[in-house]
Design a binder for these strands. Structure first.
Lengths: 240, 240
DNA sequence: GCATATTTGTCCGTATGTATA
DNA sequence: CTATACATACGGACAAATATG
């Protein structure tokens, strides 16, 4: 056997030991990482039996994890059909970037000179990764930068909202041919954004952010248009 | 027996018939209504056995519903201790109103003259309820007004975010002696808000909204301070 | 501090209904 | 239309942690 797919047996080694945060939570984290990481392609059905067996958890526990992921929007639950990795549409991308504008915009305005140290560190890590052409790390640090940007607002709910937003966005990145390189041209803007924040120029920082988001959205939408244009001719059974 | 508490046996009559949206979803809706409606006091533990028996569902199904409610912030899941109705703090109130400012503010700005018809209707329903001193309806229509305000932004994610925000907020309202009357003084502001929107005066509408939120937050915080001040002397076992 | 009872966490087996080949 | 696969939901079981006396 062992044809369980991309699901690793991470849990197996820890099974039977004392559980710090509950099996369902850990299963949720693992699946979230697998989904946002692209190991499960959008539209793929997540079988209760195969995944449950691969992770060594019962279907009951797995279903609890599915409920959480469904609430986060990473999977879609269809009654009596199962859960499927979310397939984002162009409208979803537009909506996600509207949310980013609202959330990050508010954070920038309220973050006139907070603790910018971690922000600067992250920018430099991203630049170093880009210099080494490690695109995967570039993407990670870029997203981390914007997460930290929101954290300046010191709002727990904005933080978790942003975390979920970025998780969904990672689903969108996978429609592009080179998701990692996507982030590279925006590093300069991240840099100038922190400079403006350091100088206390909140309005200009907000404008810089808006430009960043508009360009990124446009670039993503272009990739989606290409995908949707080729979807009619190619055989890509969306799962039905 | 029948000492199952405030949980009605709504499900019982429908059991066995075809289920349109899954038992777990329906249990979630029922419990959400019971919690936000105040039938379960904040801090109360939701027993799997008693509630499962009262609703006529198995523990597994109930636990799926608990996961959803936990993700919405209405209940808190403590490992090996169970789920408890969320007890909001003053910091939570501040955070919730920060979110409201961000979300509703964005909606007002982007909603320069959308479809204001439903909004006006809701304002008038609220005013009629206030005239009849039906405070429960006043509260319902006031919240509905703000939900519809956000819907002007035409963003599915902002809509669901606002819905969850207001559900959490209803938890906060229950710390006041007369939660219903709380909303009455703000109806005039809702009215003037739509007038400003109709006139296309987006900036003034945003200012009116801000004043609304600041006053409401201050009033809520005052109630929380009274609660916290009396909490030390009275015996109110927070569940531990 | 200890022994006991209660409750949650997790798994398993199974019956039923729904969707799909 | 039938058959098969799978999700849905239930109920029982046991271990582990917590609450109680």
């Amino acid at each position: 056997m062992d044809g369980a797919g991309p699901v690793s047996a991470v849990l197996q080694s820890e099974r039977g030991r004392l559980l710090r945060s509950g099996t369902a939570e850990r299963v949720t984290e693992i699946l979230r990482e697998q989904i946002t990481g692209g190991l499960f392609a959008p539209g793929v059905r997540l079988s209760e039996e195969s995944i449950g067996e691969a992770l060594g958890v019962s279907r009951n526990t797995l279903r609890e994890a599915f409920r959480l992921l469904s609430h986060e929007g990473l999977v879609v639950h269809e009654l009596h059909r199962g859960v499927f990795v979310r397939v984002l549409t162009a409208a979803d991308v537009t909506d996600l970037y509207l949310l980013r504008q609202v959330v990050e915009g508010a954070a920038v305005r309220s973050a006139a000179r907070g603790e910018l140290g971690t922000l600067i560190t992250t920018v430099e890590q991203a630049e170093a990764a880009a210099a080494g052409r490690r695109w995967g790390e570039v993407a990670t640090f870029d997203l981390q930068f914007h997460q930290e940007l929101v954290s300046l607002a010191a709002s727990p709910r904005l933080d978790s909202l942003m975390r979920r937003l970025l998780a969904e966005l990672r689903l969108a990145f996978h429609v592009m041919s080179h998701p990692g390189e996507f982030h590279e041209p925006y590093l300069l803007r991240n840099r100038s954004l922190v400079s403006l924040l350091q100088a206390g120029k909140a309005d200009e920082a907000a404008a810089e952010l808006r430009a960043y988001l508009e360009d990124a959205e446009a670039q993503l939408l272009k990739a989606f248009q290409q995908r949707d244009a080729g979807a009619s001719t190619e055989r890509k059974p969306q799962h039905r």
